[in-house]
Simulated assay, not measured.
Amino acid sequence: MCRWLAYSGEPLRPATVVLDPQHSLVAQSLNSPLGNETVNGDGFGFGWYPSGAVAGSIPALFHSIEPAWHDTNLRELTGAIESPLFFSHVRAAAGPPIQQTNCHPFRYENWMFMHNGFVSGFAAFKRELVFAIDPSLYLELKGTTDSEVLFYLALTLGLRENPMAGLAAAISLIEKVGREHGVAFPMQGTIAVADGATIWALRYSSQGATRTLFHSADIEALRELYPDTAWLNLFGKAAHVVVSEPLNDLPGAFLEVPESTFVTLDASGYHHQPFLVAA
């Protein structure tokens, strides 16, 4: 469906991971070896928290319906700013039209959200899901994707208080309503959420066969293993990325996130938990 990347660590020029690596996100938009769609050219998005921003700061967004590989503004922007936490996403549309409001990441207050996957049979029960969104959030819906509806359902059901519980409740509702409409496996995807300080990532599908998800290994450990690899020195000790697929072929640089796993990435590093959805 799509490819995405989330970075957290010392302030960094986003181009360092979005554009420059061997298998950068922009390179993956042209050729995604681990994706279900090789080409992801139906628009892209980039969202970032400014350097020095205080807790609760609202992230900035840049969306375009151009292919990521063709957009000079993306190159200018990611080469000019620095950010300690940013998201980037390249899209392969699977039904909803190609328009800026359908490009990830989505934003509500200080929260960002992006998704690679789909809600199977979404059109048949979209109305029920949209009506389950809290009325105070309903007017925030701008696009037509299942991903954006999932985000606002999770906000409605407690994402801001407990991201894992909020996502679990939203996915449980989607599975319940989907199965009532004859869809055996309603949910598919990997998800990233951030509040400006922490990134939460999820790999889950109703069928137990989810799109790929990886995160980087510890930079200091990689420097010890590969002391002559100069590009590792571009990153600080706290630098971490969560990605749909690895950005390079360096052995041990990226670790696959297991199926049905919820990952918290904060100042202390990665923390994995089993992700369970109520029957």
Rank of each mutant, 00 (worst) to 15 (best):
G47S: 09
R75G: 14
D71L: 06
D71A: 02
L61H: 04
S88M: 13
G35H: 05
F62M: 11
V26Y: 05
Y49L: 06
L34Y: 05
H70R: 14
F46D: 04
S51A: 15
I58H: 10
T72R: 14
S29T: 12
E37M: 08
E37H: 13
S88F: 09
D71I: 04
L34E: 15
S32F: 02
E66W: 09
G56L: 10
A55F: 10
V54F: 04
L34R: 13
F87I: 12
R75L: 04
L74Y: 05
Q28Y: 04
W69Y: 15
P50R: 15
G43Y: 00
Q22E: 15
F62Y: 15
G43M: 02
Y49A: 06
L25N: 08
T38P: 01
N36Y: 11
H23I: 01
S51N: 13
G41W: 00
H23R: 15
I65F: 00
S24C: 12
P59N: 03
P33N: 10
I65D: 03
G56D: 06
F46H: 05
G35S: 08
L61I: 14
L61D: 09
F87C: 09
N73P: 00
L85Q: 01
V54A: 15
P21S: 09
A53Y: 05
N40T: 09
I58A: 11
S32K: 00
D42K: 02
G52I: 05
G47I: 03
Q28A: 14
S24D: 04
A60N: 13
Q28K: 12
P84Q: 11
V39C: 12
E66A: 11
W69A: 15
G52F: 03
V26E: 08
T72A: 13
E76N: 08
A27N: 10
I81Q: 02
N40C: 08
P84R: 06
W69N: 11
Q22T: 13
G47R: 07
P21A: 09
S64Y: 01
S64E: 04
L77E: 04
A55P: 07
S64F: 07
F86L: 11
P33L: 07
F86V: 10
T38G: 01
N31D: 15
S83N: 03
P33V: 07
G79R: 05
L74T: 06
S57G: 10
G52H: 10
V54Q: 14
A60Q: 14
V26R: 02
A68C: 05
G35N: 03
F46I: 06
S24Q: 10
I65S: 11
G43R: 00
W69Q: 12
P21F: 13
S32V: 05
Q28D: 12
N40Q: 04
N36C: 08
I81K: 04
F87M: 09
F44L: 08
S32Y: 02
F44H: 15
L30N: 11
N36T: 13
P67G: 02
Q22S: 09
F87L: 14
T72G: 02
N31S: 14
L61G: 03
T72E: 14
S57C: 09
F46S: 03
A53G: 15
W69E: 07
G43V: 05
F86P: 08
L34S: 08
G41Q: 13
A60P: 00
